[in-house]
Nucleic acid binder design. Sequence first.
DNA 1: ATGAAAGCGCTAACAG
DNA 2: CTGTTAGCGCTTTCAT
Lengths: 325, 325
Amino acid sequence: MAGIKDVARRAGVGVGTVSRALNGSGYISEETRKKILEAAKALDYQPNELAKNLYRNKTDFIGIMMPNLEHPFFASLLKHLELELYRYGYKCMVCSTEDIDNREREFLDMLKRNVMDGIIACVDLPGDEEPETERPVVTLERNWGGGIPMVHSDHAMGGKIAAQVMLEAGCRKVLHLYSQGKDSPFEQRHRVFREIMSAHGVQLVEAEAEWNHMSYGYDLEMARRCVRQYSDVDGIFASDVQAFGCMAAALEMGKRVPEDLQIVGYDGTEITRMTYPTLTCICQDLPRLAQVSVQTMVALLEGKPYPEDLVIPVALQKGGTVRWT
Amino acid sequence: MAGIKDVARRAGVGVGTVSRALNGSGYISEETRKKILEAAKALDYQPNELAKNLYRNKTDFIGIMMPNLEHPFFASLLKHLELELYRYGYKCMVCSTEDIDNREREFLDMLKRNVMDGIIACVDLPGDEEPETERPVVTLERNWGGGIPMVHSDHAMGGKIAAQVMLEAGCRKVLHLYSQGKDSPFEQRHRVFREIMSAHGVQLVEAEAEWNHMSYGYDLEMARRCVRQYSDVDGIFASDVQAFGCMAAALEMGKRVPEDLQIVGYDGTEITRMTYPTLTCICQDLPRLAQVSVQTMVALLEGKPYPEDLVIPVALQKGGTVRWT
DNA sequence: ATGAAAGCGCTAACAG
DNA sequence: CTGTTAGCGCTTTCAT
């Protein structure tokens, strides 16, 4: 592997000159620049990024922490985050905590060791400690407190839209699958939904999903159980995957959707458009969530002020699991 | 940020001693070791990995190249790869090429710049050039030639199983959605499937999906078009996502699955178990694919021989989209 | 058993 | 404009 010294020798100049020529910093005569470029090409010179990183104390890596990479919400979010980071010249290092003990802690420690420049986290803060904040952290949908910027969807709006859909659809007894995290912004969605339902005299049956247990298997299984247990409801509000689990269980029991049972999902991932009928759901704006969190991260890294408004609107996607009038 | 010098000063020893104590290399008296450990703890010392990387010329990063992180097959594969790399102490750097021009090339160049120790690639080799092989590359389901190890499923077996299912189900006219890459091992699946179908006099209608255009939207749209166009088939063989697209289009047209139309998917991702009826499909063994490719990568990095057999068996998942007798 | 010193490959400050 | 040199923070000889 040719190093900068080899290039310097071949071009008959000093290493400093090579560095300047290749980085376009400082003054270089056109002539020597050409010589250097030629030498670099001839030797197929590639600067060793490790040396550069040590000097700059920066790697251009951003770590992404997610509970589960297989879940359609996180898979899609990761895609958008990676793309957005790429636009700003950052590389994406990913950590799927799954249910592995201590994985969050280990990952956060890497931040202290300068492995990456910052972290975008979609998981809860491990333990009760404040994170070291020497390098920036931005969270998505998770409250880490301590002035750490949190980008999230407008879940109050989501709960409200879902409730309105249920009301217009004429539901009288609704199954509501929810989950609650550490001061999570999600709770707004459930709170608002409950309030509106109660205010209109709609009966509510609730089941709590384990927080942060993001997996298809779990979601489908719990959805199935709930539908069996509360077989007399005429409406369901749950996350996308859970909603599909409910629909499958109901169809298996001989119910018709939406004639006997109306279903509203939450998230709006691609899977909602994959079936017939398509799933009516509240869509989170994943591209925008990714965009804003990356912008915030970059601003933090550059010491600039970051966007004030970190709340992203949601939208209704009308699908075939609700009877529209 | 406390450095090794600070620790040395505080413990009243030289930096070399601190390094040895903390890495457990060389001889250290129990007494000074204690002093050093204390000092390190007191200062919350974290070794700067950038310096270590430069010295070792190694980062413990493995790059993962994928065409699309949102697609359930790749999302799931990534999850397993990341987990497996973690087991071996490697971190996972991810690159989603999407359809971005030159992204593969750029990512491969990072390998030359020592940004990562190796690459596991699930995309085609850009251009016709041989990749620099100074640092190891392993591919998953992609043929990069030049002695680069390729881990892949036993697609001949997959094609055979799918064909047998179709025959047993009594299909007489089958729609076959396929795609072909650069010398891809996938082709076996299509070749074997065709051969068996023809041998038994089953009529075959084929539609080619664009290679490497891995996205829900595209898959669903093309599936819908095909089902409309070939509305008289009684069986369909396609990838998971395409299969769902076909099923949705057929249901929308008033057909019944599996009574009027039987469907066999390929991949066996989580989405196949999400609906009612569940999708009959050929399952690739993603955990095993990940395991073998990571083992191969690690062996390459350590200069050891790697597993000979890089072909992973597939299995049939019986679902409700086929009439079982 | 331990301290001093020489790199790892690059960038930037400083002389010329 | 360009060459020389001093780090970046760590690991590892090499003396002692």
